[in-house]
């Protein structure tokens, strides 16, 4: 074991990486070639992040790296040393996507559920950047998330409904504050 900052590590040696996962400081021993998704699933047992295509096409492995959605299959765990990672488990526990989850449930926006964590992480980022995206913008944002069950309509419906509900709530809040 050695420091990743200074040494040229041998290919088979493990490296200790430290990161903050879902708000908790965590350390793992990984081989350089272990992807972040494999590290999260096998070592930390955070199996909500799904390994699908393992080549950045399907979007099932999305996590937040320092607050932005990235594919956990397209980076090696060793690269995440020092980073903040939030998985679907962390976002669920914090309650920030509770309305999205409820709306997905209400509208049957999932069947097998394999794509759902990635869909939620992507939808969460979209709604954080754009308050009321058009349906076209929602579809565009989801263009890297494959769902082989639902045909996407219900997923787009759910995200659009949450955007409307959040906007209405924000308007109400602003009204309440000004009166």
């Amino acid at each position: 074991m050695s420091s990743i900052m200074s040494d040229l590590d041998e290919a088979d040696a493990t490296v200790r990486v430290r990161f903050v996962v879902n708000g908790r400081k965590t350390a793992c021993d990984v081989a350089p070639r272990d992807t972040l998704v494999d590290c999260l699933r096998t070592q930390l047992e955070l199996t909500g992040t799904h390994a699908g295509c393992e080549m950045g096409a399907c979007g099932a492995c999305l996590v937040q790296l320092d607050g932005r959605a990235v594919h956990a299959c397209l980076m090696f765990a060793v690269q995440a040393d020092g980073a903040r990672i939030d998985t679907i488990e962390g976002l669920s526990e914090s309650g920030v996507i509770a309305d999205l989850q409820a709306e997905f449930h209400r509208r049957n926006a999932l069947q097998c559920g394999f794509c759902t964590p990635g869909m939620l992480i992507n939808a969460h980022e979209l709604l954080s950047n754009v308050a009321r995206p058009s349906r076209e913008a929602i579809r565009d944002a989801l263009s890297g998330n494959f769902c082989r069950c639902t045909g996407y309509e219900a997923i787009v419906d759910a995200i659009a409904a949450v955007a409307e509900a959040r906007a209405a709530k924000a308007a109400q809040g602003a009204e309440g504050a000004s009166s």
Binding site: M5, D9, P32, R33
Partner: peptide
């Protein structure tokens, strides 16, 4: 679907 083993160096 896994990379061959390699060594890793983080340059600053």
């Amino acid at each position: 679907m896994k990379a061959r083993a390699f060594s890793y160096f983080r340059a600053s």
